[in-house]
Design a protein around this nucleic acid. Structure first.
Lengths: 248, 248
DNA sequence: CCAAAAGTGTTAGACCTACACCCATGA
DNA sequence: TCATGGGTGTAGGTCTAACACTTTTGG
C-alpha cells in the first residue's frame, strides 16, 4: 500500500562542465511499469499514473521521486529511490521542505516531501539504474519544461543548498575524490554565485586543514599540471558539526 | 475531510525567566471537542482521538498541532493553528522537518510536518485561545512526560533554531518590542549555550545598526536603569537575507 | 616558443578577544 | 550607603581584501 497523497521528490545536484546540474527523469511507460512491479505497488501506482496525463507527456521532465509506501520509513525509502536512480550508495541527502500547497497538482491533493542530494556525476552510472533511459542531467540555468511545481522545488532546493554551503563544507560531495583547488574554487563560485579571489580562496581553504595533498598531479593537460587534493574526512566531520564561515 | 496519516506539530518557543520555554498542551476532552467542532472535522478526529489512549492521559503533554484538512494549505493551516493556540498573528514560523519513521506512533502510521515558532510570552494571551486551560509553558531543560516522539521533535527544533540563530537575527522574535542589551545577551547565551563577553557583545550588536535607541529606560529597578532598544525592521530584513555571523 | 592555467606574498584595514573598573538607581 | 546590575576602552592578534607576476606544461 502506498500513501496516495504523499510523495517524495529528490532534487539531485551534480557539478558538470563547471555548472550545477539537476538530474531529471521522464517517466516512459515501460520504465514506470518496471519500477512499479519491483515495488509491488503496481495497481495503485497505475491508477495515479493514469490519472495524471502530464506524467506521460514526452515534453515534461520530472524530479526523481515516488509515492511513499505505508510500510516504509520516509528517509530510508528516499535513500532507496536514490540508489535505484543513480546506482550510488551513501549519497549526501538532506530533507529540506515539505510542499503542501492546495493547487500544486491539478485534480488531486498530494503533499511532497522534498530532499536534495549531492553527487558527483563521474561516479553516477546510468547503466546501473532501471530507469536509465529516461534520466538526464540539465543545467540548472537551462531547465526543460517540468511537471507541476518542480521548478519551485528546484529553486527552493538551490536556495537551501546555497545557504548551507555558506556555513558548511558540503560542496565536496559534488567533486570526485581527487580534485584541484581550481575545481573547488569554480564549484564554490557557482554555488555562491560570485567570483572569488584565487589567492585568498587558497589561503582560506588550506588554513582549514580540510584538504590533503595526494602527491598526485593532473596528467595530459596542455598547461602546468595542478596538484590533486582529497579531503580529510575527520576534519570534514568536525567542520560540519561546528560550522564555518565560507562566505568568502 | 482530514488526512488521517498526516499531522502538523508546532514547537512554540518562548523566552521566560531567562530560559527557553516550549508551549505544550494537554488535550482535555472538552477542549478537544470544542476544537473539533470549530473545524467541522469532529467525527474523523474523534476516531483518531479515541484510538490513541495516550492523547487522553493526564500525565502526558503534547506539541500543539492537528491533522491537516484536505482542503487546507499546509503552511496557512499551521498559521491558523498557531493563532488559535496563542491568540497571536504574524508569528515567526519555520517548517524545519517532516518526521516519517515507521514506529513513531503506535498502532498507526502518521507522518508529521514539524514547525517551530518564536513568540514573546508577554504578548501571548492564553485567554484568547479556545484551548487556554490546557496550555502551559515548560522550561526546555525540564520537560514533562510527552506523547510519542515529541521529545525528538523538540530537540530537533532546538538544534535547528541554534543553527539558524548563529547566522540570522531571529532571536529578536522572542523579545518584547523594547528590550535591554542585557536581555538580548542573555537570550543569545541561552540559545547558543555559552556565555558571551558583555563588552564585545555590545560592540558587535551596536555595529550592526540593527538596534534603535528608543530614548526610554527601565523603570523601578533597584539598580541603574538600562536603556531600552527596539530593532530596526529594515536592517533586520536586510540582515536576514544576507546572513551574518553571530557565532560570537 | 607560445598559449593556458597553476601557483604564489604583502600590506592596510577590519574584526576579534581578553580583560577590570566606575556609574546610576531604589531600597 | 549598600547591593545590584548597567555601562564603558584599549591593545594585541588574527582574519580579510585587494592586488600582478612567474612557473610549468603540452602542443
Amino acid at each position: 500500500m502506498i500513501f496516495k497523497n504523499l510523495s517524495i521528490d529528490c532534487v539531485i545536484f551534480g557539478f558538470r562542465d563547471n555548472k550545477l546540474n539537476v538530474l531529471l527523469w521522464q517517466p516512459e511507460p515501460e520504465i514506470v511499469k518496471k519500477l512499479l512491479i519491483l515495488n509491488d505497488v503496481y495497481l495503485e501506482f497505475k491508477e495515479i499514473y493514469e490519472n495524471n496525463p502530464a506524467l506521460k507527456s514526452d515534453k515534461h521532465w520530472g524530479l526523481i521521486g515516488m509515492h511513499l509506501p505505508v510500510e516504509e520509513d520516509l528517509n530510508d525509502y528516499t535513500k532507496k529511490i536514490l540508489e535505484m536512480a543513480t546506482g550510488l550508495q551513501n549519497i549526501y541527502l538532506k530533507q529540506f521542505q515539505t510542499f503542501g500547497g492546495i493547487n500544486r497538482i491539478p485534480h488531486t491533493r498530494v503533499l511532497t516531501v522534498a530532499y536534495y542530494a549531492l553527487i558527483n556525476p563521474e561516479y553516477h552510472d546510468l547503466k546501473l539504474s532501471p530507469v536509465a533511459k529516461a534520466v538526464k542531467w540539465f543545467d540548472i540555468d537551462n531547465l526543460p519544461d517540468v511537471a507541476y511545481d518542480a521548478k519551485d522545488i528546484i529553486s527552493h532546493a538551490l536556495k537551501t543548498l546555497r545557504e548551507e554551503a555558506k556555513y558548511h563544507p558540503v560542496g565536496f560531495h559534488l567533486l570526485p575524490d581527487k580534485f584541484t583547488l581550481n575545481e573547488l574554487q569554480t564549484l564554490y563560485e557557482v554555488i555562491l554565485g560570485k567570483t572569488l579571489d584565487t589567492r585568498n580562496f587558497r589561503k582560506k581553504i588550506l588554513n582549514m586543514n580540510l584538504l590533503m595533498d595526494t602527491g598526485e598531479k593532473q596528467k595530459h593537460v596542455a598547461h602546468r599540471a595542478a596538484k590533486l587534493f582529497s579531503f580529510d574526512m575527520e576534519m570534514y566531520n568536525k567542520l560540519r558539526e561546528e560550522g564555518l564561515n565560507f562566505s568568502i
